[in-house]
Write a protein that binds this DNA or RNA. Structure first.
Lengths: 250, 250
DNA sequence: CCAAAAGTGTTGGCTATACACCCATGA
DNA sequence: TCATGGGTGTATAGCCAACACTTTTGG
């Protein structure tokens, strides 16, 4: 592949014509599997360099819709939970020369703005329902454990850190069921909390807290098949009030 | 004033040439005076229509820097606390035809993008140090009580609501001293909390909580001049570490 | 019967809330 | 001396953290 046939060139030409310049969206797609919190990353064509999935906003497209489209294209999901968490707007967010060299993209074909302001969204998705799909300029799309990330392109390591910290802060208000099988067990929910918080939790206290919240509905069945006591299955109750704005601080 | 001499036309021409299209910044500048939480608003030239102060991002300017510049230009402050709180990115955030008609701006001179994505920042400033200054396209800049706002241009009523809810949520982590005189008294701090939260607080519990936080330093002087007991003056300690500091002597 | 994980209560400390009176000041 | 708001303590309730054993299951 050389500069004359790299598929990024027509892609960026399309973007340059139809999308808002100087802006992008980056998506931190969280999944949960094998007791690990994971994020979906892309490997750029012909390289060993990874980045977050991202994309651009069409001139008349809502920003939330653009984020949804971008995440949907990489995961195949038509139902997902998305949350805008931060704008990365430094004039020098990353070393541009170094980054574009690492991507092996032909700079003259893809550089359509001197800098990019990126709106960060995180998504909570059901790992088992995702079909990771690379895009035009990437060869591979797959999950990485959040503790074991490579050095990413752009400032994407930083963006993931900020996303994780946001998720941590907002843990109790977020619909974590999007990250779990449906239905799920309390131990699964506990391990998810532990992964997000990075700390161990006491199972007795965790049970009490979850059951006392009144948000969980115990199903008649249990999850069997393991060589130990079968746990009960639960579901979050759908009683989400129509409240749009957050409640006064705690 | 007619369409041929409206100062907005050269202003928007300048912006169109040097700033990032499709993007703006809106600033919710909070001040506190006479036991009221206030925001700084601008009245558009030749109208009775008010809006938030806002502006645009130069092509190579950091977004935070642009927000700082915008707030500084309306307040004259060179020191202030700024926090990015939300991006308003709906494709149809407000009724464009109606809004631009209300501004009495000559549409053909100022419409340089079909829609605008706005990054919301709130600022916490010291009311008594602000010199409100209108800009090129406004006649008047002044404080309004947050409970008593007029119907604003664009979706700015909504933006203020979201800003206030964000501030409420983040109250305990924000440096509220920026909103108060330096030094301040505990009753002043309490009334500020009450304005932000919209609820009354018990003074005994509030004293206990503030003093127990270890963040406050009691000064030897008191604030005198009122016809009642002179309150002690306090300052926030500059040590932002999580250290627990010794309590002030009784 | 063993290994592995599920499920369950009690206690103590800390934090938040409710509540009322005296004090200092200037007019 | 009065009106006004400042400054303080105590008792209760709810929440969170610490802590260990029994149960169930498949192999």
């Amino acid at each position: 592949m050389n500069k004359y046939n790299h598929p990024g060139v027509p892609y960026f030409q399309h973007v340059s014509e139809h999308c808002i310049h100087y802006m992008s969206i980056d998506g931190v797609i969280f999944g949960f599997s094998e007791n690990q919190l994971k994020v979906l990353l892309l490997r750029w064509k012909g390289t060993d360099e990874w980045s977050l999935p991202g994309g651009f906003i069409y001139k008349l497209e809502s920003v939330d819709a653009a984020a949804g489209r971008i995440v949907q294209e990489r995961t195949g999901l038509n139902q997902l939970y998305l949350k805008q968490f931060h704008v990365f707007g430094d004039a020098n967010r990353y070393d541009q020369a170094d980054t574009w060299q690492r991507t092996k993209m032909p700079l003259e074909g893809i550089k359509w703005s001197e800098r990019t302001i990126s709106i960060g969204y995180y998504a909570l998705v059901n790992y088992s329902k995702v079909t990771p799909m690379p895009d035009l300029i990437t060869d591979e799309c797959r999950w990485w454990n959040i503790q074991d990330l490579p050095r990413l392109l752009f400032d994407h390591n930083h963006i993931i850190e900020v996303a994780l910290h946001s998720l941590r802060r907002e843990l109790n208000e977020q619909p974590l069921n999007h990250l779990l099988p449906d239905p799920f067990t309390i131990p699964e929910l506990q391990r998810l909390h532990e992964c997000i918080l990075g700390t161990a939790l006491d199972s007795r206290n965790f049970y009490k807290k979850m059951l006392a919240s009144g948000q969980l509905e115990r199903l008649p069945e249990r999850r069997s098949g393991t060589s130990h006591k079968a746990p009960y299955l639960y579901r979050f109750q759908e009683t989400q009030s129509g409240e749009i704005l957050p409640e006064p601080g705690t």
